[in-house]
Design a protein around this nucleic acid. Structure first.
Lengths: 359, 359
DNA sequence: TTTGTGTATGTTTGCGCAAACATGATTGGT
DNA sequence: ACCAATCATGTTTGCGCAAACATACACAAA
């Protein structure tokens, strides 16, 4: 078993770390030990400084910090996580990011979490099926996140079938899982009520509704509130039209509504469908708001540039995101799970698409 | 070294782990050792099975897998990362998610990365300043990501001032850092050229341009291509109007353009500004496309519902995202850094907002 | 037989950090 | 003066995993 001297495979020994120009084995991560050596203290003291322990005298702390800066030390989060059993990471499960609301919410979550020094790991659900969701939650498990925020918009979170590691806190956005989990959501019902009341207060006999898809919680809640607001006011409840949130589906619905003689007021479940309705009314020669009044939902930034500028219900997505993070961090801190629903209020923004009916 | 037969190596006593009803210290993570004990093998064999090593005989593998399932074993990614120096994680730095393009790109990145078994960590830039970006990159360092995808849209990535851990691969979206980093971007110039050519081919004398903000790379590239396409065609180059991407700013620009007598064709740098232009033209009594033709950029889903449906340049954000991930994974695999630019083509979508000029 | 060549598995080790404990240096109270 | 109670800091240990190395056994070629 000889091996030629002078040849590289000298493995048995890890020594000679600082041998001449030693090749950096891995990303030459600067470790606590390096900082400790430079600062002339023990690595534990470096750890203490790094974690802001009060038990370090000021002069020592300064030395250590100087050494850290000189070497460009960054604590290794893997080791930290291994030791502490926590990554300070929140997993966010999303279905689809292509809706404005989800994105805004996600952005707020990321920003707010960063402020509290938590990182965000994005877990997209690859397919909107139970299996897809299972997969997402299972990946969460491997990633050892401290908490999960699920941005669900469809009826797929059957809690019974999802198993997460114990101790992981969950907050769900836009769901009806309030019995099991913390839920944060826009106050859809109140928003819809405001929209319908606004139209009724203008003097309309009743209000038609173009709803979103049935699988959507938000859509169902808006539709339900529309219905009860009408019945509470003693008004007739016209049949519901259904779209899929897209402007095109709103256009389809608009073509039909334009032929309804008694239709003077419409509440669309989102702004994009309202845009489609506007187009349909325009093509059919129905003036908005003179012939038909229209209210949307969301208050997308372009809503004020629609023709005419759209009266709509403003959602505070940023608040929703912030609430999610606060809620989840609260659960982590207190190590409790607190089911319940947090509702974020909406505002009615009145622009030019609504007016009293002609007589 | 002798060790007593019959007794497990009871050295310093981490005492009585399975003592009566021992409180689960942490989240009772099932570890390899637990699986190994149940399966009657060494933990190294469990590791091999877990990593799909071929050196495990089929019967053993099955036993181990059975044990894993029984205990619900999930490899601990912290330990794995600590050992391997890699989390299989890509950090994504974003400025703002509120633009449609960014969020589509992000979604594609997340999905594509998940397919290759990489996780995504979102790092929001808290403030659009050098310091903010520094902070984001520095956080990347702590998180020990394997690669970074930066979705930048403004001139702030001054590579000289950003230090990341060596070995971390970077891809930048929408930037001109092609000398230093890999850059993936929509082919802005070609898209803009197509838009302008389309209008010129319809017979317009020249094409006006409503650009985005100067800080935006995309905006600058579209404007430059607009200019060269005009000069190459021997046409006059009208003054540039500038917006901030918002529909409102497009409206402002539109009010001014409506008063330009020679203006029969406009290229707006994005669809939202085009929407604002449409509104301004409508209010000023200019018919689109009869009096003025208009082309946008982006092809937002609602563009077909604008009044009139908008001719625009379609961007393939999903392709951009996929390219980013492919590129970065390629760099990781080959451990190379390859500066250069990858351009994703666009398509001109002709709808009803463009027509030949009246004479 | 011996020797080699695999192949499947076990054992040791250390990644970087921080809890737990140990030590040594100051205080202050009596 | 003494001891005890603080403090600041050092030492040891192990988190869960996988690379490196060691071993044990099977089988083929000499």
């Amino acid at each position: 078993m000889e091996h030629e001297p002078g040849q590289p495979p000298v493995r048995n020994l890890p020594p000679a770390k600082e041998a001449a120009g030693a090749a950096p084995r891995r990303k030459q991560q600067v470790s606590m030990a390096d900082v400790a050596k430079l600062a002339g203290v023990s690595s534990q003291t470096v750890s203490r400084v790094s974690n802001g322990s009060p038990d370090v005298i000021e002069s020592t702390r300064r030395q250590v910090i100087a050494a850290m800066n000189e070497l460009g030390y960054r604590p290794n989060s893997a080791a930290r996580a291994l030791k502490r059993g926590s990554f300070r990471t929140i997993g966010v499960i999303t279905f689809s990011l292509s809706s404005l609301g989800n994105m805004r919410t996600l952005e707020a979550i990321a920003l707010h979490a960063a402020r509290q020094d938590f990182a965000i790991t994005l877990i997209p659900v690859t397919a909107p099926t139970q299996a897809g969701i299972q997969g997402a939650f299972s990946r969460m498990g491997e990633l050892a996140v401290d908490a999960v925020i699920a941005i669900m918009e469809v009826h797929l979170l059957d809690a019974a079938t999802v198993t997460l590691p114990p101790g992981v806190k969950v907050v769900v956005v836009d769901s009806d899982a309030g019995e099991q989990y913390s839920v944060v959501d826009t106050d859809q019902a109140d928003g819809a009520r405001k929209a319908v009341r606004h139209l009724l207060d203008l003097g309309h006999e009743t209000v038609w509704h173009v709803a979103g898809p049935e699988e959507s919680f938000a859509s169902e809640r808006r539709a339900a509130a529309w219905r009860t607001t009408l019945t509470d006011a003693g008004k007739a409840v016209p049949p519901v039209l259904r779209g899929d949130w897209s402007a095109d589906s709103g256009y389809e619905a608009g073509l039909r509504l334009a032929d309804e003689p008694g239709c003077t007021a419409v509440f669309a479940a989102n702004d994009h469908m309202a845009l489609g309705l506007l187009r349909a009314f325009r093509e059919k020669g129905k003036a908005v708001p003179e012939d038909v009044s229209l209210v949307g939902f969301d208050d997308v930034p372009e809503a004020s540039s629609y023709a005419p500028p759209l009266t709509t219900v403003h959602q505070n997505f940023a608040d929703v995101g912030n609430q999610c993070v606060d809620n989840v961090l609260q659960q982590i801190r207190t190590n409790t799970t607190e089911p319940g629903i947090t509702l974020v209020p909406t505002q009615l923004v009145v622009r030019n698409s609504t007016a009293p009916p002609k007589h």
